[in-house]
Design a protein around this nucleic acid. Structure first.
Length: 267
DNA sequence: AAGAAAGCCAACCGCGACGGA
DNA sequence: ATCCGTCGCGGTTGGCTTTCT
């Protein structure tokens, strides 16, 4: 005997919800509360299965939902929680009021994964990605294909990040084995990948029109690192200038330090 | 300007967990 | 102890939108 379908699918509607259906569902739940989902569609006059109603309510119609992109703080929370919990999206969502598991899952797959990869971190296990042997650039500069000017900054920033990670490895800031089969056994939030100023030096000096951007090397003492950090095109994370914690601090601090920083941010 | 490719996200599907009979 | 119905979760898909060529 096969598994029973979750509901009688004959005559039931699928696909995007209409405003009228939304209204019926909202009105019913606001009047009667969330009763058993299986019975709800009939009672609410909807030609949907209970599962579809539950999903629509929890992921889209619930009044306590936040709309819009995840904030940087929420994004960092997701990264941190993912390192701890893995793909348990509902557990992760429970730490982020107003966000759904589906929303977080989508955001992870479309945004965060890419950011981590750009940072040289494997989004699956939060460990450094195996170093890819970069092709030697052509010696003859005339043969080099120049990226369009508007893309150059992004390319440079990315290259700078990757090379800095590589440098950190060579400098024994993190253990490195050419075979890349070693299990580093650390999480993203434990990796002292690079110092903040190490990231910014080549980038700010080369491409940003900041007050500190001159032909001389980046002056850490007299420049506002956090402000300049906003020009980093491949990492659009922003930070409250009044707070001294950078994303790198967040990613590299130990738990107690990070928690203190989070508290400082929230308060 | 138009077609192709990539990005994005709401919604669906199927499985496992859980609780009641 | 077992069966069955329901719910919730995580993975996947479909189709709309945006960007690129």
């Amino acid at each position: 005997m096969g598994r029973q379908p979750c509901c009688d699918k004959v005559g039931l509607k699928k696909g995007p919800w209409t405003a009228e259906e939304d209204e019926k569902l909202i009105n019913f739940i606001l009047t009667n509360g969330q009763c058993c989902w299986r019975a709800l569609p009939k009672l609410a006059g909807l030609l949907r299965c209970g599962k579809s109603c539950r999903l629509r309510w929890t992921n889209y119609l619930r009044p306590d939902l936040k709309r819009g992109l995840l904030s940087e703080f929420e994004e960092k929370m997701v990264i941190d929680l993912h390192a701890e919990l893995g793909n348990r999206w509902s557990k992760i969502a429970s730490h982020l009021p107003g966000r759904t598991d589906n929303e977080i899952k989508n955001h992870w797959n479309t945004h965060i994964k890419k950011k981590l990869k750009k940072m040289g971190i494997d989004p699956l296990n939060h460990k450094p990605l195996p170093m890819i042997t970069a092709e030697k650039p052509p010696q003859n500069h005339q043969t080099r294909q120049e990226p369009p000017p508007e893309k150059e900054a992004a390319v440079m920033a990315e290259t700078s990040l990757q090379s800095t990670v590589t440098e950190a490895k060579h400098e024994d800031k993190i253990p490195f084995d050419n075979s890349m089969e070693v299990d580093y056994n650390f999480c993203i939030d434990e990796v002292p990948i690079i110092e903040t100023h190490e990231i910014l030096v080549p980038f700010v000096n080369l491409s940003t029109p900041t007050s500190s951007s001159t032909s001389t090397p980046y002056d850490v003492e007299s420049s506002n690192i956090l402000e300049d950090f906003h020009f980093l095109p491949t990492l659009d994370w922003e930070y409250d200038h009044s707070n001294t914690m950078s994303i790198w601090d967040f990613l590299t601090n130990d738990d107690s330090e990070r928690n203190a920083s989070i508290e400082a941010l929230v308060t």
